[in-house]
Amino acid sequence: MWTKYHKKRRLGRFVLPAITIAFVSYFGYHCIHGDYGLKATEVFEQRRIERGKELADLVARREHLEKAVALLSDGSLDKDMLDQYARYQLTYSKDNEVVIFNK
């Protein structure tokens, strides 16, 4: 019950703005520094680019290995390729040959 002797408090006017500022500050901070914030998005983008390059390298290596396997398959056995692998695995060479290994 309100009486005419009731004093209005100045502190009551600042409760709602203080809660609003705290609410906005909390979510604003987490928009920038949180797990899915702007800084984390930059890190995710860098990882995506790095892994894209790694994927391209692995795809190129796989294609190279698939070509080498195709040359050694039963249907189209390439004798030069077979000779090359045999010499590499057994470290065999003739006396008058110069061997250069490329990886």
Rank of each mutant, 00 (worst) to 15 (best):
I32M: 04
D35E: 12
I19Y: 03
Y85T: 07
Y92E: 12
S25C: 12
Y29A: 10
V99N: 04
I100H: 10
G75P: 02
E54K: 05
R47E: 15
L55P: 04
K8Q: 14
L72H: 03
H30D: 11
E42I: 01
K79I: 14
Y26Q: 10
E66P: 00
L71T: 00
V99W: 04
E54A: 07
K79H: 11
D95C: 00
N96H: 08
R62I: 11
V43M: 02
G28P: 01
V99T: 05
A68H: 03
I32F: 08
V43T: 09
V98D: 09
K103G: 03
G37M: 05
A22H: 10
L65Y: 03
R61G: 03
K103E: 07
T41L: 08
T20Q: 15
G34E: 04
Y92I: 07
H6W: 05
L90S: 07
D35Q: 06
L72Q: 00
D83V: 14
R13C: 00
A18M: 11
L16S: 09
V15L: 14
R87A: 07
D83K: 15
L72P: 01
G52T: 12
L38M: 12
L77H: 08
V24T: 09
D35T: 11
Q84E: 15
F27M: 12
F23I: 07
S76W: 08
K67R: 09
N102P: 00
Y85E: 13
L82K: 12
K39N: 14
M1S: 15
D74K: 14
L38E: 05
F14H: 01
E54M: 05
E54N: 00
V69W: 00
T20D: 15
C31N: 12
K8W: 14
D95N: 01
K4A: 01
R87Y: 04
T41Q: 11
Q89H: 06
N102C: 05
E63G: 10
R10H: 06
R61H: 12
Y36G: 10
L77G: 06
L55N: 07
